[in-house]
Design a protein around this nucleic acid. Structure first.
Lengths: 206, 206
DNA sequence: ACGTTAACGGCATCGAGTGCCAAAATGGAA
DNA sequence: TTCCATTTTGGCACTCGATGCCGTTAACGT
């Protein structure tokens, strides 16, 4: 059941030194289990390390911080999103493309949804994680800003791309927060609605 | 020159116990001075306390955290913004009112501008402060969401008010970040432009 | 067997943040 | 003037996240 320690070395079947004692995935599993029981704040890194059977020092070789545990393979997912942007038709309006890609990016296999929900509950409700999330969101925004900048022939750091990416992220977070309060709503629907409002400049609300 | 220790007791000229050894304002001054020299990260709470001539333990009675030092009287300013929203004409469109109030809220006396710039450079560029700012932004968003909810007869936690407040905040942060890169631009102008873009649903960018 | 390589994990250290509590300072009342 | 109530101070001890250092362990190839 547990992930193979060699998960991280799929692309190098033959390797030299000592094998990793665990994997990011497995650590994530163990940690989420503890978070579920005692809460994020009351679970110490020692707890996680002990439960995973590794030393505390080793934990910090798998994750830069306790906060990072909940972010899974976020960086890899960003790469996927960047690719989706690359496949957008050039004659689709920017905000429409943005809406489509972001919504698609948030489609999950039904089996994964409860897991994703727990992850987002942590990120959006635990103060320490809310705070830390800002740093991860910056990466997300950059992907969006790159797309917008590319389309408009502007620099990534120009005002327009940054403004659009910030606004879009804000809308997504609001949608996510709303989704968490709805027991059985579809995330993609809420995101789609919210992003449509944004593209309309919220003019519908008089 | 230093603020009176009794700053915090303006409304109670006669008081009982021991006088405070310093004030939030004075601590802020001392801290900013150190941040300027050594940077935020390399300035410890001990450094600040020592420079202010108080004990480390006492520092934490003035501020909940080292991060909070840079936020000055943010909560008081939010109250002012809430009042400004209250004075808005009911027939002004929501996004227009939002734009006006937020821009006005960011007008500063020219003499304060350099100070405000340094404050925002810290908040927007130091990772630890970027992260912590999220928690303060939440308060800001609530003020905006309250206004929008009130106007639409919705709950503060409804999707629309939250979405609008998140988007508006995002735009403001983008504007602020842009302002920091421009040596002599007017913050209010940038904010006004960016908020106009938002109200237009970024439709101008095709 | 031996050397190389890579991961492990203990130890020491730093810095933020908190609970506890005695000491200091201040005004008012006896 | 002395004593009391009140309020702030600040030292001490402790927890927890995070990091540098370094010897140890486990795998592989020769």
């Amino acid at each position: 059941m547990a992930a193979e320690p060699s998960d991280r070395y799929r692309d190098r079947p033959v390797r030299r030194g000592r094998r990793p004692a665990t994997s990011k995935h497995e650590l994530e599993r163990v940690a989420f289990d503890l978070f579920e029981r005692a809460g994020f704040e009351d679970t110490t890194v020692d707890d996680i390390a002990a439960a995973a059977g590794i030393g505390r020092r080793t934990f910090f070789r798998y994750f830069d911080s306790k906060n990072d545990v909940v972010w899974g393979s976020f960086t890899e997912q960003l790469d996927a999103m960047r690719e989706q942007f690359g496949r957008c038709s050039a004659d689709q309006p920017i905000m429409a493309a943005l809406r489509e890609v972001v919504v698609n990016f948030n489609r999950f296999d039904p089996a994964e949804v409860p897991w994703h929900r727990r992850r987002m509950e942590l990120i959006l409700r635990v103060p320490a994680l809310q705070a830390h999330s800002t740093l991860r969101y910056a990466e997300w925004r950059t992907v969006v800003a790159e797309f917008v900048a590319d389309r408009l022939g502007l620099d990534v750091d120009a005002l327009i791309p940054r403004t659009v990416s910030h606004a879009t992220l804000g809308v997504c977070i609001a949608a996510y927060e709303h989704w968490l309060t709805q027991a059985d709503a579809r995330l993609t629907d809420i995101l789609d609605d919210a992003l449509a409002s944004l593209a309309g400049g919220f003019s519908d609300l008089a």
